[in-house]
């Protein structure tokens, strides 16, 4: 009973409290931060266009680097956005090394099939594939902003922090990315939405 309560208390600790505890020497508390964020970081990296193995490697590296640099995080800095910064930088470095990108020409994807009886496309995978191809065509920074905002639902101030942009600049970047996506989707947008 006691251990259950303690477990619940641990989960209720904020990131800042966990970091303080780690700095005091309770280093295994870092495991709770890993548990809290590993799924989101992995999903973010997949949405950035990495495959499973790449995303898994970079997720691990992200937490290892975060642990090593934990002493450099400022008191007023949000741990979550700092973690996304590390992941985004790691992804950027990876893309550079891989000489980004496996762009799929839009024409190769074929028309977007729509079920006559429904307003949504037949296959979820088909829309997902098309969306990934479109995101792949965005400049890296625009893709980061869109993925963090839309898929990770980070507030704009955290998106800005994680991407190294000012708040207004993050919104303008997001606006430009969405305009591009709208342009590429063109008439099929009304079918999809």
């Amino acid at each position: 009973m006691k251990s259950q309560r303690e477990g619940r208390d641990l989960y209720q600790m904020s990131d800042e409290q966990l970091i303080l505890a780690i700095e005091r020497g309770e280093r295994d508390k870092f495991g709770l931060l890993v548990e809290s964020y590993q799924r989101r970081i992995y999903r973010f990296l997949r949405n950035m266009g990495l495959d499973h193995d790449e995303a898994a490697d970079i997720t691990q590296n992200t937490f290892i680097l975060a642990y090593k640099n934990l002493g450099s995080i400022q008191r007023n800095k949000c741990f979550r956005s700092w973690l996304f910064t590390i992941a985004a930088n790691q992804a950027r470095n990876y893309f550079r090394k891989r000489s980004r990108q496996r762009q799929v020409p839009l024409d190769d994807l074929g028309p977007l099939a729509v079920d006559e009886n429904q307003s949504l496309p037949v296959e979820r995978g088909q829309l997902r594939e098309r969306l990934e191809a479109l995101l792949d065509r965005l400049p890296l920074k625009q893709r980061q902003v869109v993925v963090m905002r839309v898929f990770e639902q980070l507030p704009f101030d955290e998106v800005a922090l994680a991407c190294g942009l000012g708040l207004s600049n993050a919104k303008v970047t997001y606006h430009r990315a969405m305009k591009k996506l709208a342009g590429w989707l063109g008439p099929s947008l009304s079918e999809i939405s």
Partner: peptide, 14 residues
């Protein structure tokens, strides 16, 4: 429209 499409279930997570 783009926002709805991306946030909709059909475009779900990887």
């Amino acid at each position: 429209g783009v926002r709805r499409m991306m946030a909709g279930p059909a475009a779900g997570p990887p």
